[in-house]
Design a protein around this nucleic acid. Structure first.
Length: 173
DNA sequence: TAGGCCATCTGGTCCT
DNA sequence: AGGACCAGATGGCCTA
């Protein structure tokens, strides 16, 4: 896996896009900006035609769109914070090798499985705090849930799988 | 330079 | 009705 040592990067916002109109822009940048602008104009004329019945003026729509964008940006930032928090509780990963989102989720899933399997092995499948007292037997809910998720044969392989994965992430980075 | 990863914008749909 | 959520599109940055 690649090392992720990217600096802070941020896509231009619509407001910042206005700078694209500067004559000093490089040729390809101008092309990209104008293409984007063109697409936006096409989209906005499409939506304008579609929503002629709506009570919003085009100025209002624009304003509401900008507010929406801001909320969406905030939402994605929150999501990224959650990803970061998750990265920080997965052990054996060096901080400078930032896990991608998919790696984080995959590793977290296998980490949870390996922990569950370890707990069950250490407790022989009988956890006093997790015993189902409804009368369905002595097996813990944790054990039952785990078997539903993993199946019998997988339960002993999780730790190995997790270690292998960590190893490969570290090597690839 | 291609490919991976990511941020942002956007419109549609769901939920409160 | 309005905000949250989602997925697709787009383009920037970085590395091999």
């Amino acid at each position: 896996m690649k090392a992720k040592s990217k600096g802070a990067k941020r896509r231009r916002t619509v407001q910042e896009d206005a700078a694209c109109q500067e004559p000093a822009q490089k040729k390809d940048e101008l092309l990209k900006c104008s293409r984007r602008q063109e697409k936006r104009n096409k989209e906005s004329s499409k939506t304008a035609a579609r929503s002629t019945k709506l009570p919003w003026s085009s100025k209002d729509r624009r304003l509401r769109r900008l507010e929406s964008n801001e909320r969406e940006r905030q939402r994605m930032h929150n999501l990224n914070n959650a990803f970061q928090a998750l990265r920080e509780v997965i052990p054996h990963v060096r901080a400078e090798n930032k896990l991608s989102k998919i790696e984080t989720l995959t590793l977290a899933k296998n980490y949870i499985k390996s922990l569950t399997s370890t707990i069950l092995r250490m407790s022989n499948g009988h956890l006093p705090s997790a015993v189902d007292r409804s009368g369905s037997g002595s097996r813990s809910k944790l054990y039952e849930h785990y078997q539903q998720q993993c199946g019998e044969e997988e339960s002993t392989e999780q730790l190995q799988k997790y270690s292998t994965q960590i190893h490969s992430f570290r090597q690839g980075s």
